[in-house]
């Protein structure tokens, strides 16, 4: 217990006395992990947005009026029920009658009253607003609606949504790839920084060996230092991404199209992962950096005695 207290005290004293090197190590961890974490967060934002954009109406079928050879509103309800049975279609299908279309038109163009006045409630067609289970199936649905004699015109967001999906997939791969590269460079940076810190103190290591310190006695303070540096850098990185992103989501909450709010659960999950990663990188970096100096100070293999 006493020994452990000594070792921890030793590590803390060393941290205090090597402020510059320690700051360097913490910054190295901080910058690389913050970049990696930032990439993960941006990736998650894109993913939620694209998912949000993919929700809602995918296909609109405008219906003929009765005088155009179309169906009566009652018959249109029957057609709606039929469309809802299609496997590609997510029930319920929204039905907007002619009056509803006029109201919608009025709200869209409320800032241009002359346009609203030029149109009367009977002109706009009624329509089905259809959401698909899988947007990739939009072509089958539009084709089937197109041939229906009661349908005047079919509009689909399919092509746009399809390219959005492709974009989403590409961004996913890119984002995760970037996070991976930055994560690996974080480990290398940490290992290198700690190695340099140990190089600066190699005399200390050799003196420790001289007075009979065991390898573990020498390692523990360095490993504790690496652990503390890795933890500090990782915690800073998580905070540096989390806090601004909270502010950002607050500032953009009123913008309907983009959604920059990411659940705290996501941050917590990745934050814990990142902190563990930083701690592990610090420990591994210290052990790697030390191994050479520890080996050098020992008499090594004894060929004569073998």
């Amino acid at each position: 217990m006493n020994r452990l207290a000594n070792l921890i005290r030793e590590a803390l004293i060393n941290l205090r006395r090597n402020v510059l090197v320690v700051t360097g190590a913490v910054l190295a961890v901080f910058i690389s992990l913050a970049l990696a974490f930032g990439a993960v967060v941006v990736n998650e934002m894109l993913r939620t947005n694209i998912r949000a954009w993919q929700e809602g109406t995918h296909v609109i079928a405008f219906l003929k009026d009765v005088d155009e050879g179309g169906l009566t509103p009652e018959q249109q309800q029957e057609l709606k029920a039929e469309v809802e049975t299609w496997t590609e279609v997510k029930a319920p299908v929204a039905y907007v009658d002619k009056l509803g279309a006029y109201e919608e038109f009025k709200t869209w163009f409320s800032d241009r009253p002359e346009l609203v006045e030029s149109i009367d409630a009977t002109v706009l067609p009624s329509s089905f607003r259809i959401e698909l289970n899988d947007i990739d199936q939009y072509q089958a649905v539009t084709a089937r609606l197109d041939v229906n004699p009661a349908v005047k015109e079919v509009k689909s967001l399919g092509p746009q949504i399809e390219s959005l999906s492709t974009l989403s997939r590409v961004l996913n791969v890119l984002g995760l790839g970037l996070a991976l590269v930055l994560g690996v460079s974080a480990v290398i940076l940490i290992a290198n920084t700690i190695r340099m810190a140990i190089y600066a103190r190699r005399d200390e290591v050799s003196i420790m060996k001289l007075v009979g310190a065991s390898n573990w006695y020498i390692r523990v303070p360095f490993v504790l230092e690496g652990l503390i540096e890795g933890l500090a850098g990782a915690v800073l990185a998580v905070l540096a991404i989390w806090i601004p992103s909270q502010n950002l989501s607050g500032a953009t909450a009123s913008i309907p199209l983009i959604q920059l709010t990411i659940s705290n659960g996501f941050f917590l999950r990745w934050g814990v992962l990142l902190v563990l990663f930083g701690a592990a990188a610090g420990v591994i970096g210290s052990l790697l950096g030390l191994s050479r100096y520890l080996r050098e100070a020992d008499g090594g293999a004894q060929p004569g005695a073998a």
Binding site: A297, D298, G299, A301, Q302, P303, G304, A305
Partner: peptide
């Protein structure tokens, strides 16, 4: 025991430190 010995033996306090 700061460096390896090429040949021979060294005993310190009765122990062969080369081994």
């Amino acid at each position: 025991r700061q460096e390896p010995i090429t040949r021979g033996q060294i005993w310190v306090a009765g122990k062969d430190i080369t081994a």
